[in-house]
Simulated scan of single mutants.
Amino acid sequence: MLNQRSALLVLLAAVLWGTTGTVQTFAPQGASPISIGAFRLAVGGGALFLLMIAAGKLQLKNWPIRPTILASLSMALYQPLFFSAVSMTGVAVGTVVAIGSAPILAGLLEWIVQKRKLSNLWIFSTILSVTGCSLLFSNRESLIIEPVGILLALGAGLSFAVYTLVSKQLISNRSSLSVTAVVFSFSALCLSPFLFLSDMTWIFNASGVAVSLHLGLAATAAAYLLFAKGLMNVSSSTAVTLSLAEPITAALLGVFLVGETLSTYSWAGLVLILTAICLLMSLTNRQDQGKVISKN
Score class of each variant (00 low, 15 high):
Glu141Arg: 08
Gln29Tyr: 07
Ser84Trp: 11
Val271Thr: 14
Pro64Asn: 07
Pro33Tyr: 07
Gly132Gln: 05
Gly21Tyr: 09
Ser282Asp: 04
Ala76Glu: 02
Ile36Trp: 02
Ala76His: 02
Ala55Gly: 06
Val182Ile: 15
Ala221Leu: 02
Phe194Tyr: 09
Ala221Lys: 00
Ala210Gln: 10
Met75Lys: 01
Phe256Tyr: 15
Val23Met: 13
Ile277His: 09
Met75Gly: 10
Ala239Met: 04
Arg116Thr: 10
Gly30Pro: 03
Ser175Thr: 14
Asn120Tyr: 08
Ala188Arg: 07
Val234Thr: 10
Ala27Cys: 06
Leu272Arg: 03
Ser175Val: 05
Ala38Gln: 08
Val43Lys: 04
Ala276His: 00
Ser6Glu: 04
Ala268Thr: 13
Leu60Arg: 09
Val91Glu: 06
Val86Glu: 08
Pro80Ala: 03
Glu110Cys: 11
Pro64Arg: 11
Leu128Gly: 01
Thr264Lys: 04
Leu225Asn: 01
Pro103Cys: 07
Phe227Lys: 00
Ser138Glu: 11
Gly254Asp: 12
Ile65Trp: 10
Gly46Tyr: 11
Thr89His: 04
Ser125Asn: 00
Gly37Ser: 05
Gly46Ala: 14
Gly44Ser: 11
Ala7Gln: 09
Leu226Met: 13
Leu165Gly: 00
Pro64Glu: 05
Ala14Thr: 07
Lys291Ala: 06
Leu279Lys: 00
Leu154Arg: 08
Ser159Ile: 00
Thr164Trp: 05
Leu283Ile: 03
Leu73Pro: 00
Phe124Tyr: 01
Cys190Asp: 01
Tyr78His: 08
Gly90Phe: 05
Phe227Thr: 04
Thr220Ala: 11
Gly107Thr: 02
Ala210His: 06
Ile248Trp: 00
Ala181His: 07
Thr249Met: 11
Lys229Glu: 10
Val130Glu: 00
Lys61Gln: 14
Ile171Arg: 05
Gly216Pro: 07
Ala206Asn: 11
Gly254Tyr: 09
Ile203Met: 15
Phe82Thr: 01
Phe196Glu: 02
Thr22Ile: 10
Val148Tyr: 14
Ala210Ser: 14
Met52Glu: 13
Trp122Asp: 00
Gly44His: 13
Gln114Leu: 14
Gln59Gly: 05
Asn62Ala: 14
Gly208Asp: 07
Ser176Asp: 04
Ile277Cys: 02
Gly259Lys: 10
Leu272Asn: 00
Val234Tyr: 05
Ala181Gly: 04
Thr264His: 06
Thr164Asn: 06
Val258Lys: 12
Gln114Ile: 01
Ala27Val: 11
Leu262Asp: 02
Gln59Asn: 13
Leu189Thr: 05
Thr238Gln: 04
Ala71His: 07
Ala27Tyr: 09
Arg116Met: 00
Ala268Cys: 13
Leu50Val: 15
Ile273Leu: 04
Leu242Ala: 01
Arg140Met: 14
Tyr78Gly: 05
Gly21His: 05
Ala106Cys: 02
Leu189Tyr: 09
Ala181Tyr: 12
Met281Trp: 05
Ile171Gly: 02
Leu280Glu: 04
Val182Met: 04
Ser134Arg: 01
Thr126His: 03
Leu279Ala: 12
Met1Lys: 03
Leu231Gly: 07
Ser185Thr: 15
Leu105Gln: 05
Glu260Lys: 15
Ser243Asp: 03
Glu146Gln: 15
Ala13Asp: 08
Cys133Ala: 15
Met1Val: 09
Glu260Arg: 13
Ser178Glu: 15
